[in-house]
Design a protein around this nucleic acid. Structure first.
Lengths: 219, 219
DNA sequence: AATTTCAGTGCACGTATGTACACTGAAATT
DNA sequence: AATTTCAGTGTACATACGTGCACTGAAATT
C-alpha cells in the first residue's frame, strides 16, 4: 500500500509516517492481540473488550476497524491462510526427496507460524461460523491443488482424477494429523518434535507405497 | 456432604422409582440440553444458565448435579466416549471383509450418534480445557487398541510395535477425516453419504495396500 | 407420626459484556 | 491560517452471567 503518488501534496511524498499507516498499525495490533489471546482458548470465547484491551485501545475504538468480532475473525482467517499458502508455495518447489522435504517444510512453517496454524485447525474443526466455512473451502482448494501436483509424478500420471483426489485427501488428512501432533507438544521439546517428524515421514512413505501398488480405474 | 454410595437400606436397592431416579433423570436432561445446544456452537460458548433453562430447571439447581460447566463437559465427554467404545466393539467382531464392514460400522454409528461424534471431534480439535485433554487421551488409547488388533492380522504379525502404532495412527486419522466429512453434510443427503463411504473405503484400501508392501525396518 | 434429607425455587449481588453517544486533538485538507 | 476529518477516549446503560443464600415441599428415614 505504498501508493503515495496519488497524494496531492509534496510533503506527503517525503515522509508519511502517519494516519493511514497508524490505523493499519492499530488494526494489526488488534489481530495480534486476538491471536495471542487465542493461545489457550477458542475464538468464540473471545470478547471484544478483551481484544481491545490487549491491543491497548478502548473498547469502542474497536469499531473503527471491524464492525464485529466475526469480521475480525474472518480477517484473521485470511491472514492465517496467507501463511498456509506461503507454505504450499515453498513445498511445491521441491524436485527430489519429496517426502523428507515436504515434511520438513510443514514442520518449519508450523514452528514459525504456530498461532496461525493453531487458529486454522481449531476453527476448521471446532468452529461453526462463517470463519470455519471459509477455512473449510480453502482447505478443499488446497487438496485440489495437491491433486494436480500429484498428477505430475511418475506412476500417477495416468490416474483418474477421482483417485487422485482420494489420494490428495488422504495426504492432507495425514498432514493435518501431524499438525495436530506438533501443536500438542511444547514448542521447545526437540525430542518429541523429532519423533513426530519421523512418524509423519513414515506415514507418507506408507501412503506412497500403497499408491505405487494401487490399481486405478474401476475396481 | 460426600459419601453417597453407602445406601444402608434394602428398600433403596429393590425399586426406588423416585428421588435417585428422578435426580438421574434431571442429570440426563442437563446432558441432553447441552448436547442439543451444541448443535451449532462450541462448548466454551455455552453458559450454565442456558443449559439449565433448556433442561427446564432454575440456574442454581444446576449445582445439585455438577460443580461447574467444566464438570458437565467431562461427563458429556464420557457419555460420548461410550458411543465410541460401543462402535469399536462392534467393529472388532468382524472376520472377513474387514474394510467394508469397518467403514459401514463407522457410518452407522456416526449416523445414530451424530451429536456425540460432533462433540468429540469439536472438543478434540477446537477445545482447550480438561474436556479436550480427556478426549485426546481416550483417542490415543483407541489407537493403541487398534494397534493390538492389527497385530493379529496376516502379514502384520511380526511388525515392530512402533510401526504398528504408526499404521494405527494413520488409520485413525483417515477415519477421523471421514467422520468430519460425514458431519459436514446434511444427514439426509444419501448421495453425498454414499460418496463419502466409498472414498473412506478406498482410503483404507490404499493404506492396507501400502502396509502389505511395508518393510518393517529396525531403525 | 415426627423428623430429616435434598432436588428444585426465588432473590440478590457483583461483574463482564456489546454498544450508543458526545467528546478530543492532531493530522489532513482547504 | 482556518477548517474538516477521524482514530481513539470516557461515560453510560441494558443485559447476561456465575453464584451465595434462605426457602419449600415431597420423598426417605426414624
Amino acid at each position: 500500500m505504498g501508493d503515495r503518488a496519488s497524494s496531492l501534496t509534496l510533503a506527503a511524498v517525503t515522509e508519511s509516517i502517519t494516519r493511514q499507516e497508524r490505523k493499519q498499525r492499530t488494526r494489526k495490533a488488534l489481530l495480534d492481540a486476538a491471536l495471542e489471546l487465542l493461545d489457550d482458548r477458542g475464538f468464540a470465547s473471545l470478547s471484544l473488550r478483551e481484544v481491545a484491551k490487549q491491543a491497548g485501545i478502548v473498547p469502542t475504538a474497536f469499531y473503527r476497524h471491524f464492525a464485529s468480532m466475526d469480521e475480525l475473525g474472518v480477517a484473521l482467517a485470511e491472514e492465517s491462510m496467507r501463511s498456509l499458502r506461503h507454505m504450499i508455495r515453498s513445498a511445491r518447489q521441491t524436485s527430489s526427496k519429496l517426502i523428507e522435504s515436504s515434511v520438513h517444510t510443514l514442520h518449519e512453517h508450523v514452528r514459525a507460524q504456530r498461532a496461525h496454524f493453531r487458529f486454522i485447525v481449531r476453527e476448521r474443526y471446532g468452529g461453526t461460523g462463517a470463519v470455519a466455512r471459509a477455512i473449510a473451502v480453502e482447505l478443499k482448494l488446497f487438496a485440489s491443488d495437491l491433486a494436480v501436483d500429484l498428477a505430475r509424478l511418475d506412476g500417477l500420471r495416468e490416474w483418474p482424477t477421482d483417485d487422485l483426489h482420494m489420494l490428495a485427501d488422504l495426504i492432507v488428512a495425514a498432514m493435518l494429523a501431524t499438525v495436530l501432533d506438533l501443536l500438542d507438544i511444547r514448542p521447545d521439546d526437540a525430542e518429541a518434535d523429532a519423533a513426530i517428524v519421523h512418524i509423519a515421514q513414515q506415514r507418507l512413505r506408507l501412503i506412497f507405497l500403497g499408491a505405487s501398488r494401487w490399481r486405478p480405474s474401476v475396481s
